[in-house]
Design a protein around this nucleic acid. Structure first.
Lengths: 150, 150
DNA sequence: CTACATAGTGAAGTATCATCACGATATGGC
DNA sequence: GCCATATCGTGATGATACTTCACTATGTAG
């Protein structure tokens, strides 16, 4: 109960540092494919949710709808996605992965798992479980605080 | 030992989500002060390390030296830092916090601690200790992997 | 059919990054 | 002292990612 502020701050600092390193590691090698952070994020959403309208992508990425246009443009130019008319709503377009895009995202998911194995593989089951449990608690608390700040 | 890939992936996803929420929460309210992410990061470095040359700041922020010029320009304009000639190296300039900058950063450190209290305050000492220990292990492993990838 | 909401884009602007070139200054070897 | 070389900061230029406002085309509710 009597944990000191400095202890907390150190934990937060480490979380932030881990974050930055994670981002750097995840983005390594994507530049050669022309995949920047937001573009990769967009591909990730399409990979997980299937063909999506740009409105949906804007909400998923947390940016304005206007911004999605340019991201999709770039991904169409580099052959990762296609734009097709929405079957029922003629205002909307559906963004889908091309074969190339699907291949790249499948590989990325594999790399993702391999990175996780490298990170957590050295931990015993109990350590790993405690880590995930605590992280989940912290995440829930943070999400609650973020929500109530709106 | 036989943890599954999906477990790992979930932990990583949560880490990334926590990251994003943390960033959003940390930046809340800074916009009113004209403090964007990189500018805040720069202030943070100066606050912790004292007056620094732009070269040092570039390395600390992980961006090109050229980029620091504009960030410092903006922070000088808004009164957070000053540029002074380096006492011994006439090529270099020293970036220091103004009184205003120091006040803001002290407040930010307090907010930081308060956020951490909100996040970790609900955890028992044992949970908290296990979390920090495991996070440190993961962080070290990640740092090792990032280093060897260079 | 009219009023209003929504999907996507053009125009214009801002912030953060990069590389290349350059002048000013340090520094080490002679 | 002198010269080659490295380093510090910045001007010029461009890419990427974001914004808001205005607009067209389309859907939807009354």
């Amino acid at each position: 109960m009597a944990k000191q502020g400095r202890e907390y701050g150190g934990a937060l600092d480490q979380l932030l540092e881990l974050t930055m390193l994670l981002s750097a590691d995840m983005e390594r090698g994507l530049g050669e494919l022309g995949l920047t952070g937001p573009r990769t994020h967009l591909l990730w959403v399409v990979h997980h949710q299937g063909p999506s309208t740009q409105r949906v992508l804007a909400d998923a990425l947390g940016v304005s709808a206007r911004n999605i246009t340019g991201l999709v443009d770039a991904l169409v130019d580099t052959g990762f996605v296609t734009r097709e008319p929405h079957p029922t709503d003629r205002r909307a377009t559906l963004v889908s992965l091309t074969k190339h895009g699907a291949t790249v995202m499948t590989q990325m998911a594999a790399d993702h798992a391999e990175l996780a194995e490298g990170l957590f593989g050295g931990l015993g089951p109990r350590q790993f479980g405690a880590f995930v449990t605590t992280m989940t608690t912290v995440l829930d608390e943070l999400r609650r605080r973020v929500e109530e700040a709106r």
